[in-house]
Design a protein around this nucleic acid. Structure first.
Lengths: 345, 345
DNA sequence: GTTAGCACTCCACAACAATGAGTGCTAACA
DNA sequence: TGTTAGCACTCATTGTTGTGGAGTGCTAAC
């Protein structure tokens, strides 16, 4: 059987109606509220075909039809009208400029959540994959040093270092110089891969204290690999959609949102396998996260410049307003793009 | 009417049974499963009295009784047996030592949530009320300075400062010395109250750049007053209790958990009005937070030493296992107490 | 003061009927 | 050959009714 133009129009009408109401839609509704000028009987025949082809399903005999995952897929791929880019440009979303990456990300999720009424997630660039801009080692007390590492986006990492034997001012100064000349421009990941040990060899001639400090720094920046920055907002929006609001589903979904680690993996994977636009849509069971099989997830990868990239995710019911979500994501993507690129590079 | 010993025992039995089952409890149950050796009829008479006195209520005529807020209140104040302290000491909760306050707090909520199966919140000491230990100002580039302020508990505050005209090494050194001698030991709040402006006067003789840097620092530490540290864990535990799990209630409760600001205010207020033990119990509508009127909240204030204090909150259904919760809180309170006090003071 | 007995209340649950939205099919029509 | 009106049929939803049982309050006897 062929999916001709008319079938597509009917399918589109069914899906759009369902997006609004969340109720199964019947032939009569389509017949009356579209400009196809077909009787409900004809629509019925077409719907029967569409069901056979797998684009729509009937929750039970004598109910209307609802889109299947396959139906949604066709909708987002072909049917959904792309709004013109100009529309997107028109209403700028308010992201206040700030020099701190974390603040930006928090703003983004908040804006998106309140604009779309869905749950919103964002992963930031991991500090480990980001270039070090500046390092500062200073003495806090006799046997305590404070290391501050500043990476692109002004992501900071502070670390206390306990030292067994004191270090004198001159050594500290040298060490600072060494750190800044050797480490700047590298990512923490790269640094972990041996730069430190090389530095140790070089410094070894000077002093054994230096070695131990370098060890401590290596330890420090290698540690807490786990703290992937994931911000969420509007997670309770899911209660606005009856099909997700029953306590079983809501509970497992919200638990999933608490599992930042898993979320981050999912999002980053989604962000990496790109299709050109940087926007991906996962409908129902297309999503790799089991608990989200009753939801749709729209992800968008962004790039702030200098390799700082991350992924935004919006989670809602399968009948989410894909157009609006995609639009919003595009706008934000535009605004984020290169926001942290050094002005003079 | 008087609340004699027998009435108390019956009330206690009713409440304990209800805590376990969550179902209204009838006279027959009490008669059978307690060692009072009274017939159900006698129990009925007593229950009738207890109802008249307001300690228990009947959801409807032919149902058993459930405790009223007043009943719970009596229970936690008098009836609930205090477990011996030794019990508390026996099972230590595993809090790994770490030098970073944030990590400790995150561990605490996690442990508590998984131990009690209720939602758990904690407010940390606000950096603004905490003493500054160390300040470091360093040059990142021509016109960018990085200020790092370390407070007790190794809470760090990083701040980029843009300067219009460059500052030379000597000035920077002086400034660092000045900052450390003047600011250490003060709280950021105190600093905001004019120390900076005094310093400006003193420094004014040296240079106008210094003045502007000091201004920037003042701005910096005065800013983001809003970021109260509140950590939550196990918020989805509320779905384990049917009386809270319906989507209306769950939704509003979870939204409340997202409102860190409001939570923090509530907790800190609870923590401040102390009754000796540092533990407070809010039953149902006793809680100032409207959305928690169907819950009970148990709070415990803790003190880490050097004025660093905060409050833990546990939110569950009114029929929560108060004893267990209070025990857990006591244990943790003990362990947290003074954990950040300097060993040599 | 305690208890057995009994009538009474009322929720929870199941069975049942009525409603109506929606379908599939057939036959007629352009 | 595609479209449509008409009709019988299905089935979730809603409302009604009745029954069982848990629990109470009251009374009378111990």
């Amino acid at each position: 059987m062929e999916l001709d133009e008319r079938k597509k129009r009917i399918l589109k009408a069914i899906i759009q109606t369902y997006l609004e109401t969340g109720e199964p839609v019947g032939s009569r509704t389509i017949s009356k509220y579209t400009d196809l000028n077909l009787s409900s009987a004809t629509i019925r025949n077409e719907m029967s075909d569409l069901e056979e082809m797998g684009y729509i399903v009937q929750p039970h005999t004598s109910a209307g039809r609802i889109p299947s995952d396959k139906g949604y897929r066709l909708y987002v791929d072909e049917l959904m009208k792309e709004k013109e880019q100009e529309v997107a440009d028109m209403h700028q979303l308010v992201i206040q400029k700030t020099d701190r990456l974390e603040k930006v990300l928090q703003q983004v999720v908040r804006v998106l959540a309140s604009n779309t009424n869905y749950a919103t997630l964002i992963t930031g660039p991991q500090i480990h994959h980001t270039k070090v801009k500046f390092t500062q080692l200073s003495r806090m007390s006799e046997n305590q040093l404070l290391a501050v590492i500043v990476a692109e986006g002004n992501m900071m990492k502070n670390q206390m270092i306990e030292i067994s034997e004191p270090i004198d001012d001159e050594q500290l100064l040298k060490l600072n110089l060494l750190l800044n000349t050797q480490l700047n421009g590298l990512t923490i990941e790269e640094i972990n891969l041996g730069v430190i040990s090389k530095m140790k060899e070089q410094a070894g001639i000077h002093s054994s204290v230096v070695t131990s400090v370098l060890d401590a720094i290596a330890d420090a920046i290698a540690s807490d690999e786990e703290d992937v920055p994931v911000y969420t907002s509007g997670t309770t929006n899911i209660f606005k959609y009856p099909e997700l609001a029953d306590s079983q589903r809501a509970s497992s979904l919200l638990s999933a949102f608490e599992e930042k680690q898993t979320l981050a993996e999912f999002l980053d994977e989604a962000g990496s396998d790109d299709n050109g636009t940087g926007i991906q849509i996962y409908i129902g069971s297309e999503s790799p996260v089991q608990t989200m099989k009753d939801c749709s997830v729209v992800t968008a990868s962004y790039e702030l410049g200098d390799g700082m990239k991350g992924t935004i995710g919006i989670v809602g019911p399968k009948r989410m307003d894909y157009e609006n979500v995609v639009d919003n994501l595009k706008i934000l993507k535009n605004q984020l793009d290169g926001i942290f690129r050094k002005p003079d590079s």
